[in-house]
Computed example of a mutant assay.
Amino acid sequence: MDVPLWFALIVVGYLGIKLIRPPWWLVAVLLLGGYLLADSVLAPVIDATVK
């Protein structure tokens, strides 16, 4: 069964918010921080570390 990555991320995110119940400001900060880091000078370093 092939599941698209965007769908899996939405399901995991929804379940994480429902089960763990983090504050909404924390979710917003993590999403914005990830978006900004992906377009920064540190992106190649993070990519190499993750792989």
Rank of each mutant, 00 (worst) to 15 (best):
L37C: 15
D39K: 13
V50K: 05
Y14K: 09
W24P: 00
D2C: 13
A28R: 12
V29T: 05
G33K: 02
V11I: 15
G34L: 03
T49F: 11
M1V: 13
V45C: 01
D47C: 05
D47Y: 07
D47M: 08
P23E: 00
L19W: 15
L32E: 04
W24N: 05
G34D: 01
L5A: 12
K18Q: 14
S40V: 00
V11H: 04
P23H: 04
L32W: 10
G33F: 05
A43W: 08
L19A: 10
D47G: 10
I17M: 09
V50S: 07
L36H: 01
V41N: 10
P44L: 06
K18W: 14
K18V: 14
A28W: 14
L36M: 13
A43T: 03
A8S: 06
K51I: 00
P44F: 05
W25I: 02
W6N: 06
T49K: 08
L37V: 10
L9F: 06
I46W: 03
A28F: 15
T49M: 11
F7L: 15
L32Q: 05
L30M: 11
G13A: 13
M1N: 08
V29I: 13
W25A: 04
I10P: 00
V45D: 04
V11R: 01
P23R: 09
M1F: 15
L15G: 04
L42M: 15
M1G: 11
G16S: 05
T49A: 14
I46R: 06
D39Y: 07
F7V: 13
L26R: 13
F7P: 02
L42H: 12
P23G: 08
I46V: 14
G33R: 02
W24C: 02
I46Y: 10
I20T: 09
L37A: 14
I20L: 07
V12S: 07
L5E: 08
G16W: 00
Y35Q: 10
A43Q: 09
G16I: 09
A8H: 01
A38E: 04
L15D: 03
V50D: 13
I20C: 02
V12N: 12
L31G: 09
V27G: 01
A48G: 12
G13T: 06
I20V: 14
A8R: 05
L31W: 14
V50M: 12
V27F: 13
V41A: 13
K51A: 04
L36S: 05
G16P: 00
G13Q: 11
S40M: 06
I17K: 03
